[in-house]
């Protein structure tokens, strides 16, 4: 029974971390059709922003939930103005440009922070469930992911801003004809996407050893989750993260962590073979 509870928490945590890792990319790639290969580096920068802020004496939760997203969002804004805005609609070109940006960020982070592993310790202590110990921080990650999904849903579905953003993504010319500047909407959306990536990097930072190349570890999973999710942003994100989280953890527990990683990739390949448009290309059609 205790073990069952532990496994359940780990599965929820796994789903939550996939949602966090992928949310920023879902906005930038899923909504804006910009293949952002620098997504992992945005996360890495979020991690460093947190660590720097904490070392300056800032409360760790403020650093993670406020400072890191805003910092990375602003960096994203600069990137959008200088590079991305010239490349909207040119899928392959954005890929090349953002790959260059990712290399630039890795280089800059290495110059500033050095090529050594850094990190902060988790602010929430572990506790026991029966005879087992659970990482208390897992619950924080699960909570953040839930709030994030809910928040995204409310903004996109129920607010005028979300409506305008979705409209501009579908038909930029119509949005412009109705008096909204697509350029500014794109800018704002990219800011949000980058900020979400920064947030993810920040809340995951206490769990990992951070190096300038850390972003590489996230990028594959993020793309797999977003692509498998399909056209609907939130329904796609939640359903594919759910599927992959359960698959990888079940295999990790029953066989080995290595098998969990493999199971995730195999599940993605099979899924895209059966549903080339992603999960929400077939189910939950027309949802946000």
């Amino acid at each position: 029974m205790d073990l069952f509870a532990v496994i359940l928490v780990e599965i929820l945590y796994s789903i939550a971390s996939l949602i966090l890792i992928s949310a920023g990319l879902a906005v930038v790639f899923g909504m804006m059709k910009v293949i952002n290969l620098a997504h992992g580096e945005f996360m890495m920068l979020g991690g460093y922003a947190t660590i720097v802020a904490v070392n300056q004496g800032v409360n760790v939760f403020i650093a993670m939930l406020v400072i890191a997203p805003i910092t990375v969002g602003l960096i994203g804004l600069v990137v959008e103005r200088l590079v991305i805005r010239h490349l909207y609609g040119r899928l392959v070109d954005t890929m090349l440009a953002t790959w260059g940006i990712s290399l630039l960020f890795i280089g800059l982070a290495t110059m500033i922070f050095g090529n050594t592993t850094t990190g902060i310790s988790t602010p929430i202590s572990g506790f026991s469930v029966g005879t087992y110990q659970i990482n208390g921080y897992n619950f924080f990650i699960i909570l953040v992911a839930m709030v994030l999904v809910l928040g995204l849903y409310i903004v996109l579905k129920l607010t005028r801003l979300g409506l305008i953003a979705r409209g501009a993504m579908q038909r930029a010319d119509m949005a412009a004809a109705l008096g909204y500047s697509p350029s500014r909407i794109y800018m704002a959306t990219f800011f949000c996407g980058a900020a979400l990536s920064g947030l993810a990097g920040a809340v995951l930072a206490p769990l990992v050893g951070l190096v300038p190349t850390s972003g590489g570890a996230y990028i594959a999973k993020a793309f797999i989750t977003v692509i498998a999710g399909g056209p609907s942003l939130i329904a796609g994100l939640a359903s594919s993260a759910g599927l992959f989280g359960v698959t990888s953890q079940v295999f990790a527990f029953s066989i080995s962590p290595m098998a969990g990683e493999i199971a995730l990739l195999v599940a993605a390949v099979v899924l895209l073979r059966l549903m080339p448009q992603g999960i929400t290309g077939r189910f939950f059609k027309g949802k946000v």
Binding site: V6, I7, E10, S14, S17, Y132, S214, F253, P257, M258
Partner: peptide, 16 residues
């Protein structure tokens, strides 16, 4: 258990 060099999530392992 053996881990590829880029594995950074050890939650399942710790429970195991």
């Amino acid at each position: 258990d053996f881990f590829p060099l880029d594995v950074a999530d050890f939650g399942a392992t710790i429970a195991k």
